[in-house]
């Protein structure tokens, strides 16, 4: 290419971009990120476990067998058995969909509520914005843990109530974030140009504003997934989530902690899996954040 062409910005075929664009070349970029690859592999593994786990259990996960109580890992029970003789491997596999599924469900709900409330408040402005944001303020002044425990206290323990409690405690943060992203997007030149051209708000919302806001919110949600998995397990550990005899990793930890001196293997599998899922979620989130960060656009 001659110098003239470059200086004159004369018509030329697209050159390798100075600014990697976000939509079309996202996957190659993400897959080039080592941490993201590791996180993705871990995530696939855990997801497969959550989906296929209940079908692969070698033993009935909730069936006690007192004759085989507290057996160490061996040929028939690969990860040993617990105090009532239930197979740990079966319970870990069976619990996967409760731990991971619950966290993903909560996050999806929070993401959806936050996105709708936040973009609505940001776009509508005026009294709608005022009411929604004061509501957000109220929720945000209450500590999340306290609010969740209060909700469970009123509704009673159980997986469904736990999900509800976590959603109620955490949606406000995402709504606030979505609103501020929307307010920024509203003032973007491409949005102003669309408004002046007479494009309706609906098309501006879905064409210009929502894709960017949703993507940024999704990055935050992925970063929050690890914490959410830990929260679901934590509440179940406290006995506020999944109820016996059903298996869930946090609940399994709670049940086995009394036997730690004589049967430490009981803690190993659920703890490792909780650790692995938090790690996977954080690796994915970091990868997304690194790739989509403004650095890529400068």
């Amino acid at each position: 290419m001659s110098a003239l062409d470059r200086f004159a910005s004369v018509a030329r075929p697209p050159v390798p971009a100075f600014r990697p664009n976000t939509s079309r070349r996202l996957w190659p970029q993400l897959l080039g990120h080592g941490g993201f690859r590791l996180g993705l592999a871990l995530c696939m593994l855990l997801l497969a476990m959550a989906i296929l786990g209940p079908a692969l259990t070698p033993f009935e996960p909730n069936w006690p067998d007192y004759a085989a109580a507290l057996q160490p890992p061996g040929a028939s029970h690969w990860l040993g058995t617990d105090a009532t003789g239930r197979d740990v491997l079966s319970r870990v596999l069976d619990g996967a969909h409760r731990s991971i599924g619950a966290a993903s469900l909560v996050l999806a709900a929070i993401f959806g509520i936050g996105l709708v409330v936040g973009t609505l408040a940001g776009l509508a402005g005026g009294w709608i914005d005022l009411i929604l944001m004061r509501l957000v303020d109220v929720v945000m002044t209450l500590p999340g843990l306290v609010l969740a425990i209060a909700v469970i206290g009123v509704l009673g323990p159980g997986l469904f109530n736990l999900l509800l409690a976590l959603i109620l405690a955490d949606w406000a943060y995402y709504a606030r974030l979505a609103r501020s992203l929307t307010l920024t997007a509203r003032q973007r030149p491409d949005v102003l140009a669309a408004r002046m051209a007479g494009i309706g708000w609906g098309r501006i919302l879905f064409g210009h504003i929502l894709p960017g806001v949703a993507l940024q919110l999704a990055v935050v949600a992925t970063l929050g997934l690890g914490g959410m998995i830990a929260a679901v397990s934590g509440f179940s550990f406290l006995g506020l989530g999944v109820q016996p005899p059903y298996a869930e990793w946090g609940a399994m930890l709670a049940e086995s902690r009394f036997y730690f001196p004589i049967a430490p293997w009981l803690l190993l599998a659920p703890a490792t899996l909780i650790f692995a899922s938090v790690l996977a979620a954080n690796l994915l989130g970091n990868g997304l954040r690194d790739t989509l960060a403004p650095r890529g656009r400068s």
């Binding site: 075929p13 050159v15 664009n21 656009r297």
Partner: peptide
């Protein structure tokens, strides 16, 4: 000569 399919980031 500019491809209408290109993205703004690919242009000067």
């Amino acid at each position: 000569a500019v491809d209408p399919e290109s993205l703004p980031g690919q242009l000067s």
